[in-house]
């Protein structure tokens, strides 16, 4: 009897322990459909309308028109409200749409839009947008939608962006180990750095 009681206490303790661990655990890396979590943004920003192809009713705006810093900085950057207003103040046709009204509310209140981060890397990782854009967009002359899409997926078909790739170290390394041509006009190839210290800080 004593033994059974002890076993019972042990099992209860074990389940309680595992249960409490699971409750504290960080949100899962992958959701049932294998993508990042659905994130609710303050304004449901239609990427497909801005960046999408003309045949799908998009404006084909270059990603780097709004995410300006991608080509010259570590981070791609979220555009300031000013940038949105810059165009939208002279687009009368959509002025009465609920999202645009909300946008102008932020503008008139002089408040930034509290966008939530979709592609969030851990703090110990150093990822550099500039290097990737310089390499694939400027040196290799590949289309920007393809270049940004390597990591961000087909944003031009999304409304609110959702993480498409795992963004794990193995996933980064799978590309870094491949040989890519150095530039569009060169047959020489090279691959990404494989030093731990380049990306881990």
């Amino acid at each position: 009897m004593q033994h059974i009681l002890r076993l019972f206490i042990l099992l209860v303790g074990l389940f309680a322990g595992v249960g409490s661990y699971a409750a504290d655990a960080a949100p899962k890396l992958t959701t049932p459909d294998d993508l990042g979590p659905q994130i609710e943004q303050p304004i449901e920003f239609p990427h497909f309308r801005h960046a999408g192809d003309a045949k799908d009713g998009g404006m084909q705006i270059n990603c780097m028109y709004c995410h300006t810093y991608a080509r010259r900085s570590m981070v791609a950057g979220i555009p300031p409200v000013q940038k949105c207003i810059g165009c939208h103040q002279s687009i009368e046709s959509v002025r009465d749409k609920p999202r645009i009204k909300k946008l102008f509310e932020y503008w008139e209140a002089k408040k930034p839009i509290p966008w939530k981060k979709v592609h969030d890397l851990p703090d110990f990782v150093r990822f550099n947008h500039e290097r990737h854009i310089q390499r694939f967009y400027f040196q290799q002359d590949r289309p920007y939608q393809e270049v940004c899409g390597y990591c961000h997926g087909d944003v031009k078909k999304m409304t609110v962006a959702r993480r498409q790739k795992p963004l794990t170290m193995g996933w980064c390394a799978s590309c870094h180990m491949k040989d890519h041509p150095i530039s569009a006009h060169s047959t020489k190839t090279g691959h990404g750095p494989n030093d731990c210290f380049t990306c881990h800080k």
Binding site: F124, P193, D195, C196, F197, T198
Partner: peptide, 15 residues
Amino acid sequence: TNHTEDGLNSQIYNR
């Protein structure tokens, strides 16, 4: 801890 190409002695905290 290992050697980087630019001659540093790196320390990878995660590892």
